[in-house]
Amino acid sequence: MTQLPTSTERSLGLVIDLDTCVGCHACVISCKGWNTENYGAPLSDIDAYGANPHGTFLNRVHAYEVQPETGPAQTVHFPKSCLHCEDAPCVTVCPTGASYKRVEDGIVLVNEDDCIGCGLCAWACPYGARELDQLAGVMKKCTLCVDRIYNENLPEEDRVPSCVRTCPAGARHFGDLADPDSDVSKLVAERGGMDLMPELGTKPVNKYLPPRPRDRDDNIDILAPFLDPVIEEPTGFLGWLDKALGTVSGGKTDKKGAS
């Protein structure tokens, strides 16, 4: 049913560490692999070996450049997938009941047997977490690897979402965000985990850990006075060259030569 549960027993989700992510896209690939080979319609590719390859992915890694008021810009790698929102707008718009949020663990899923592929849920999602598969004609989204996390045929260490298991940097964490004593909840509390687009009121379960402030060397000038240039203006051969070149280019000279 597309009525959202008033509360869920657990809130399983991801905590993504923007400080640690190196932007390797391993999570993108492992997600595509697992979700193509397992539950539901495979994630198709269109024109895979042609001039305009594109396809369905449940997880994509953006890269942003942040320019502070002063100092150098910083690159932030930014993995994005379904945030399994508490107030998921994608669920309530669904006309068929194919989209639903599970009461037992809060995972937002699509029942592909009921989906008509109208795309309205993708319109309702602010995060671009849902993609309509162009071959299957049904809506695809992150399942939080529901077919791994409860799968007793897998070794215990593999019972986490594929992206989490794969991440070589340890930037992705999986757990119950409704339990204040869980590792992920502690991480969120310690590092100031944040919501994406909180102004839209979706109450995402997944949290993002902001990049930590970079080290700044403000105290390197103990020897700096000794490193000041001895002469401001070039003399000798360089001085002659500077003047000569300046004349050629219109008589203007400065420290860096002709302007």
Partner: peptide, 22 residues
């Protein structure tokens, strides 16, 4: 959208995929 506003002005450095998507 990125939650990175507290650090400074954000712009896209590199898109997540070279082609288009849905």
């Amino acid at each position: 959208a990125t939650g990175l506003g507290f650090m400074g002005k954000v712009r896209q450095f590199e898109p997540p995929h070279t082609g288009t998507n849905y």
